[in-house]
Design a protein around this nucleic acid. Structure first.
Lengths: 121, 121
DNA sequence: ATAATATATGAACAGATGCTCATAAGTTCA
DNA sequence: TGAACTTATGAGCATCTGTTCATATATTAT
């Protein structure tokens, strides 16, 4: 009695499309890389931080000016700059009492650009 | 008596670096565009969704297979696919009992690529 | 030293998020 | 029709997040 061969397979939790899952699984980046990527995008996923970064596209600014530009408290901006700093996206520079922040990455602008293309589609 | 001109200005909440703030402010995209951009990146800011998208780079897959690949419940995957669908990042196609999802955007891969460059720097 | 200004930081709180669970909806096959 | 299977969805909940507030730190000028 020949075993009935299933050509187009169902999606039983056991009889999954094993071929597909195996092939795709092999091409996936490491768990760690995907996690880090998500962490990076998480940083971009807040409109305050997006605004800060966009402002710094133009030129370096101090905390106070950013706060004024975005009409937010110094504290809130400082907290967010810390997040950006930890993600190695901005770099601080002291000048007297002021801390000037500037962008520390060349790829951000390209990432944002592609993001805007998606939005405006 | 000549008015003392302030060259490098202080950061009083009143005497902000008005020139800078004004110039940068003019170049900022609209509030709405920046908000939408943040929303898009928020979608990328979760490792489950990152994994789903990366899997779909290879080929379309059904809910069940994605769940199996990522070792998660069907429900969790379905919820996340909904988020991706609402963001117009994936597109569903029915085939019998299965819903096959595929990527609906050409720019995602470029965005992810640039993101990885930042991480590996 | 003290005062004034700029920034940083911890605690607290409200709101958002992602998963699980239960259940519903849609499809196929007997 | 009903049973089996796949996917979708709402509720509940634990966790995470972004802001505010109070306070600390750092620099400059008096």
């Amino acid at each position: 009695m020949p075993v009935k061969k299933k050509e187009k397979i169902q999606c039983d939790s056991n009889i999954v499309h094993e071929e597909i899952v195996r092939r795709v699984g092999q091409k996936m980046p490491s768990e760690e890389a995907l996690y880090d990527l998500a962490e990076l995008f998480k940083v971009f996923g807040d409109s305050t931080r997006i605004k800060i970064i966009w402002a710094l596209f133009e030129e370096e600014m101090c905390v106070c000016d950013i706060a004024h530009l975005l009409n937010m408290t110094h504290s809130a901006i400082s907290h967010q700059l810390r997040v950006l700093k930890q993600a190695r996206l901005v770099r601080p520079r002291r000048e007297g009492k002021n801390m000037y922040y500037s962008l520390d990455d060349q790829h951000i602008e390209e990432i944002f650009h592609q993001g805007l293309i998606h939005i405006n589609e």
